[in-house]
Design a binder for these strands. Structure first.
Lengths: 241, 241
DNA sequence: CGACTCATTGATTTAGCTCAAGTCTGGTGG
DNA sequence: CCACCAGACTTGAGCTAAATCAATGAGTCG
């Protein structure tokens, strides 16, 4: 079987060099795998998790439940920790749900803390990954707060494509998107109906094609220019951290 | 002169116990103070800061510049680090601007990193403060994505009051808000004109009074209920972290 | 087949935007 | 001391992007 930590190692390796020993330490973490069906709750709101969870396969989302409806505040792909912050926050301020059938691994908090102690550089990289989550959230705030539905959706497509490419899950001109239009609405702060019309509009403008769960574009650059997409916030540069 | 680190120590002390030695280590950090006028840029977008900055007095905001206008993705009050993440992110994905005249202290990254090494528990608390920023951003996404202008503004008032109270800058029934209505629009993803009408509406509903920069309410609970405000995300509980 | 869930489209409504004009304030200079 | 000016606030009128409501396909699974 493939190493479950592989996508996480891949994601870190894009941002900094890992020593062989560090890679080994990550693979040696006692990880408990579990499958979830689309729609299932992975971590509950207001709970106190004793473990941190990592997406191995599929996608999941962080859900803040407001009185007027749910908002998906972040989308996670393989290699992303979905609640690493619970190591410090203790009490969840949101829930995590499966947005597709997915496989999630979890590691007891004690082992994560131990890893940080024994490998301070890995500790910094775990900190880094929570801080990149924050950068993505800032971009999401700007996206929802300032851009039109058309640009919002285009921006999300650019981001997803870029993030999936990092872990080898995107082709040069597209990717597989398993979200329903209702999910997309909850991610973008739009109604499901309007998401549908917005996809149609993007298609009419020949910026992309979207049939079933296949998203394809002829030129990523056109889409990125239209969406005002600047990938700086994804921190894809290798730097000593 | 008052210790510049005092509001930061106060903010951490709400979340966990600090030893006398840890407090001393924080006060011993070489901090360089600088004043900024309202509107001045404190940290530039796409720069590589060599220091991390902390608000000592006044308020500032993190600004993501989109093609259609600026979005303020976070508001910071005394005791908040505005770019602690730059220790790991290296390149800024947004700028930081003064939203009122303010005093900001900055500490070289090397000293912050050294502090984390010598005092692992303080390191975890610095990590914690970046992670609380993330929690606040999630709440902002839900606020902008799902709530009406009226609730959005009410929610912001609840959050600001709660955060200012922690550092002793709020009275039980109100606080001083130095933002212009244009700033509020950029925080909430609304136009300045609509912010004006929304404030008027909140006044008519007797949820608060807002004259000059004094925000006052008769019952915080009424406002919080109206705004669907749940302070869990602010992590104001003392926990061993 | 029948009961889902998801996607699609039309008709209508509405929250919030834009444009425009005015007021009120504090600061500056003659 | 007062005229002027720049920012910020306020209000009105009209417009528009997106929401809501409603109906209908289309695919899937027990």
């Amino acid at each position: 079987m493939r190493e479950p930590m592989q996508p996480f190692v891949a994601a870190l390796s894009v941002r900094d060099d890992l020593s062989a020993e560090e890679v080994r330490a990550l693979h040696d973490l006692p990880i408990h795998l579990r499958s979830f069906q689309r729609g299932e709750e992975i971590v509950g709101d207001h709970t106190r998790p004793g473990r941190s969870s990592l997406v191995i396969d599929g996608t999941c989302g962080r859900v803040v439940q407001a009185r007027e409806g749910r908002q998906i505040t972040a989308v996670h792909v393989p290699g992303d920790f979905v609640d690493l912050h619970s190591l410090l926050l203790k009490v969840m301020d949101h829930s995590v749900v499966a947005l597709s059938d997915c496989v999630v691994g979890s590691v007891p908090h004690g082992h994560v803390a131990g890893l940080c102690e024994r490998h301070p550089h890995l500790g910094r990289l775990l900190w880094l990954s929570t801080v990149i989550d924050g950068a993505i959230q800032r971009s999401t705030i700007a996206n929802i707060g300032r851009r039109s539905a058309l640009q919002r959706l285009a921006h999300l497509v650019c981001e997803l494509h870029t993030r999936l490419a990092v872990i080898g899950l995107a082709s040069p001109n597209g990717f597989t998107c398993s979200f329903t239009q209702t999910d997309l609405g909850d991610i973008l702060g739009l109604s499901a109906v309007h998401v549908n019309r917005t996809i149609r509009d993007l298609r009419h403008r020949k910026l992309l094609s979207w049939s079933g769960n296949q998203v394809l574009f002829s030129r990523f650059e056109s889409l990125a220019a239209f969406a005002d997409f600047d990938p700086t916030y994804l921190n894809l540069q290798k730097e000593p951290r």
